[in-house]
Computed example of a mutant assay.
Amino acid sequence: MAETPGLMTVLLLHLLMVDAKDFNLTCIVQDDCILPCSFRPTGTVVIHWYKQQIPVHSYYYNKDQFGLQNKHFSGRTCLFNSHIPHGNASLLLRRVKVQDKGRYKCYTSTRKGNQEVFINLEVKAPIQSVMMEMTDDLLTCSSQNIHPVPHVTWATDPPPDHGFTENSTLKITDHKGLYTVESSLRILGNLSHNTYFCSFTSADKTQEWTSSWRNQEDVTQEEGHALSVPCVAPHTVQNFSLTWTFSSSTDPAVILRFDSRTRLVSNQWEGRAELDQNLLLLGNGSLLIHKPDREEHSGTYTCTFSGLQSRHVVQTRVNITEASVGECRTFYKMFLFLSNHRIAVV
Score class of each variant (00 low, 15 high):
Asn120Leu: 06
Val237Phe: 02
Ser82Ala: 12
Phe305Asp: 02
Tyr60Trp: 14
Thr42Trp: 11
Phe73Gln: 03
Phe80Gln: 14
Ser228Trp: 12
Thr173Glu: 15
Glu3Trp: 08
Arg214Thr: 12
Leu264Phe: 08
Lys124Met: 13
Leu227Gln: 03
Gln65Asp: 14
Asn194Leu: 01
Leu188Asp: 08
Val254Ser: 10
Asn145Phe: 08
Thr330Cys: 11
Ile47Val: 14
Ser109Gln: 12
Ser184Gly: 03
Thr169Asp: 06
Thr316Asn: 05
Cys198Ser: 02
Asp174His: 05
Leu338Tyr: 13
Ser90Asn: 08
Thr44Ala: 15
Gln115Arg: 12
Thr302Gly: 04
Leu338Asp: 02
Leu15Asn: 13
Trp213Asp: 01
Ile54Asp: 01
Phe39Asn: 03
Pro150Leu: 06
Leu68Ser: 14
Arg40Asn: 15
Leu281Ser: 11
Gln115Trp: 03
Val265Thr: 15
Thr169Cys: 12
Ile343Phe: 12
His83Thr: 10
Phe39Pro: 02
Pro41Trp: 04
Asp137Asn: 15
Thr169His: 00
Trp49Glu: 02
Glu217Lys: 15
Phe66Tyr: 15
Asp64Ala: 15
Tyr107Thr: 00
Leu91His: 05
Glu133Val: 12
Glu327His: 10
Gly43Met: 09
Ile320Tyr: 00
Ser324Asn: 11
Ser109Gly: 03
Cys27Ser: 09
Val325Ala: 07
Lys101Trp: 04
Ser168Pro: 04
Trp154Arg: 03
Gly163Ser: 13
Thr210Leu: 03
Gln99Glu: 14
Ile343Ser: 14
Val56Trp: 03
Thr210Phe: 01
Thr300His: 07
Thr330Glu: 14
Cys37Asn: 04
Phe337Thr: 11
Met1Leu: 12
Leu336Arg: 11
Asp174Thr: 07
Asn239Phe: 11
Glu116Cys: 08
Asn267Pro: 01
Met132Glu: 00
Leu227Pro: 02
Lys105Pro: 02
Asn239Lys: 14
Tyr301Gln: 05
